[in-house]
Design a protein around this nucleic acid. Structure first.
Lengths: 224, 224
DNA sequence: GTGTATCTTGACGGAAATTTGACACTCCAC
DNA sequence: GTGGAGTGTCAAATTTCCGTCAAGATACAC
C-alpha cells in the first residue's frame, strides 16, 4: 500500500486532506512541526510527502534539502500560502517535485498526489533489501537465500517486507495487524508468531538461533 | 541530449520558452496546432512535452489522452490560461503530469521541466520482447513461438504486452484492470485468469507447468 | 441482419495458504 | 524454585484462491 505523510500545522488543511487520502486507500500519517516531520519522513519513508513551507521549528525548504539526498525517490509536494516566484524556485531548487499554493482545490491536490505515486518508482527500478545472505525483491516478490529462490507465501512475504522496510526497528504485533491485515480484519495476534516461525525455517540457517528475525519479548519482532 | 517539444500557437509564449530551453542545452522543437503537435510528439518522442490546452485543430486534453497509452514515459506539462478546477482535474485525468497556468514565471516553468527530466521513467522504446522461444512485437501486435505466428486476441495481447514491458515484475490484478480496461470499466478480476489460461495454452509448451507466465498467489501474474 | 470470434461471468473442484488452539518451553519477577 | 506471561511449534480445521469449463453476452466483420 502506498504511503503519504502530511506535514502541516493547520488542522483545516490536514484533516480534509488526510481523510481524502485515506478514503482513496492510502496509508496516511501526519506531523505538525518541522523536526517531527523530518523524523517521521525518515522513519516512514512515504511515497509522497505533502510538506508545508511555514512550519514551527524548521521550515519546509530545509526539510526538503535534508531529505532529498537521503530519499531521492520520495515525491515531495510543497504547500504554501506564499506564491511569489522566488519561493517557488527556491522550493524546486531545494529538491521539491511539485509546488501547490494554498488555498488549493482538494481534487487537484489528489490528482497531483496520484502523479507522484505513478511517477515515483520507475517500473524497472529494483527495490531490493538485503540482510546477510537473504535478499528480498519487492518488484518480483521473491526472496532469495544464498542466491537461491526461497518460496514464501503472501503473508510471509508481507511480514518480511515490513520488517525489511524498517530494519532494526521493533515492530509491535498490533502494527503488523494494522498494516498487513488492515484495520477491519480481526485475527489473533498469534498468527504472526506462526508466520514468523515458518519464515525462520525458510531463511534462517538455524531456525532455533535466529540471525535475522529477532523476537522482542512483550512487543514484537525486528530484523537485523 | 534530452528533448523537449513545445506545442502552442502563441509566439509570445513559444519564443521565450524555446530560447530558454535551448539556452539550458536542451534539444527543442515546436508545433503550432493540435494535429501537427500530436504527429511531432509521436515522431520525436520528446522527454518533456509542453502542451497548450487551447489549440487549433485538436485540444490538449485529447492529444494527451491519445499520447499517454503510446508513450507512458513521456512527461507532459499542460499550459493554459484557464485555471478553473474542472480543467485542471480533466488535465490530470487525461494523463498529464503537471499543469501550469498562464501567465507563468519562466523560471518556474524551467524548474518544472527539470523535475520532469529528473523523474521521467527511462524511455522504453523497445518494440520487440523475447522470452525463451516466445517473441512479442508491439508494433505489428504479433506473437511468435519458435518463429511461428501464434494468433492471440486483443485482450490476450494487451495482457501479454503489459507483462512483457515489465519482465519479472509481479503485476497485480487490479493493475491489469486499470491499465487494460481503464478506470471506469467494471469487470470481474477473474477475467484476467481466463485470458491467462488461454494465453498459456498458446505460448506454453506445457500449460500445466508454465515456464513464462507465473501465478503469484493472492496478487497477480509475472513473466519470466 | 447474420454469423462468428471474442469477451465475460459464474460455478466447481482441488490445492494451497491461513488461522486456530493446544501443548511445551523459556524468560523473568518474586 | 515457582508461577505466570509470553513465545515456539505443530497439526487440524477453515478459508481463500486459482485453473478450468461451459454458457451467455458482446463486439465485429461481412
Amino acid at each position: 500500500m502506498s504511503r503519504v505523510l502530511i506535514v502541516d500545522d493547520e488542522p483545516a488543511i490536514v484533516i480534509p486532506v488526510r481523510d481524502e487520502l485515506a478514503f482513496e486507500g492510502l496509508e496516511v500519517a501526519c506531523a505538525e512541526d518541522g523536526p517531527s516531520g523530518l523524523k517521521a519522513a525518515l522513519e516512514m519513508r512515504p511515497d509522497v510527502l505533502l510538506l508545508d513551507v511555514m512550519l514551527p521549528g524548521m521550515n519546509g525548504f530545509d526539510i526538503c534539502r535534508k531529505l532529498r539526498p537521503e530519499l531521492p525517490e520520495m515525491w515531495i509536494i510543497l504547500l504554501t500560502v506564499r506564491g511569489q516566484e522566488v519561493d517557488r524556485v527556491t522550493g524546486f531548487e531545494a529538491g521539491a517535485d511539485d509546488y501547490v499554493v494554498k488555498p488549493f482545490s482538494l481534487r487537484e491536490l489528489m490528482a497531483r498526489v496520484r502523479v507522484g505515486l505513478r511517477r515515483k518508482t520507475p517500473a524497472n527500478h529494483q527495490r531490493v533489501y538485503k540482510f546477510g545472505d537473504v535478499e528480498i525483491d519487492l518488484r518480483s516478490r521473491t526472496v532469495k537465500r544464498t542466491g537461491r529462490d526461497v518460496p514464501v507465501t503472501r503473508k510471509e512475504f508481507e511480514i518480511l517486507a515490513l520488517l525489511a522496510r524498517r530494519p532494526g526497528e521493533v515492530i509491535p504485533r498490533d502494527e503488523f495487524c494494522d498494516l498487513i491485515w488492515g484495520p477491519d480484519v480481526f485475527v489473533t495476534q498469534r498468527v504472526i508468531d506462526t508466520h514468523i516461525a515458518s519464515l525462520r525455517k525458510k531463511i534462517e540457517p538455524e531456525p532455533d538461533e535466529p540471525q535475522h528475525i529477532f523476537s522482542v519479548r512483550g512487543v514484537g519482532y525486528k530484523l537485523g
